[in-house]
Amino acid sequence: MRRVELDFRPAVPAADANAAVGRRHDRRVAVDDAAGVVAEMDRAGVSQALVYAPHAAAYDSREGNAWLADAVRGEPRLVPQFVCNPAFDDLDDTAAHAAGAGARAVRMLPMLHNYPFRPWVVGAWLAWLAAEGLPLWLPMDYAANWHTGGELDPHEVFETVRELPELAVVLSEVHYRQASWALPLLRSLPNLSIELSRFVIVDGVQRLLDAAGPRRILFGSRFPDSPMAPQLYHLHRCGLSEDDLRAICAGNLLRLLGMDAS
């Protein structure tokens, strides 16, 4: 039996697929600036992090994305992820802004922004993402003091994503409540990956490996709501081969983002 490591450091490079930078309106978070995110990355042994701005999710994507672009400028370890609201935003304007800011991925929140994840709302946006090679993150929900809306609709995800096999989509913040449909969905959609920050069911990584294989699983922390190190510790205890560990801890994310692992 292995013992508990009290001074853990990851044995492979790590890149976080789910972190936020910036203030929230509804509560004070422990870390709300780029320097704080980088300090946590140093503490946990994380080399890069994909970050979005909470304001872009909660209120206005244009304002929040612009703030994010400023916040991460000059900090190459923080990779910007733009939040998009296809029901409200202008596609051409967003595309230009994303290209200018070096955004490597997009996050959509259909429940929070109050639209169905259907081609007649998001079709043009998904076509843009596919053409640009930008992966799409779909969080299960968004917790805010005024929003207690429902969770992502798996049927909508299935019907919409299967029409765009060239688009990479990442289910994010999947909780054990959603495990019953998330695994069949991963089996059904080869262009779908999963980010691990809230996937806590017992033997969850092995179940994901069985359902989707090692190239569609991404380490993510949900920082600053959660610390970065525990999920990495967990992954190092899952009996993974070194290749699979490297892929899940960093390689898969960097591949999706079109970034060099070096």
């Binding site: 508990v4 490591e5 009290l6 946990a44 806590v200 069911i201 017992v202 525990p230 510790y233």
Partner: peptide, 28 residues
């Protein structure tokens, strides 16, 4: 909370916490 949750993930919170080794052993 196993098997609702994975013990490796849960123990990681203690193992990687910013507390002393003595405190970790007590908690664990």
């Amino acid at each position: 909370d196993m098997p609702l949750m994975d013990a490796r993930q849960q123990i990681a919170k203690v193992a990687t916490a910013a507390i002393s080794p003595q405190a970790k052993r007590k908690v664990l």
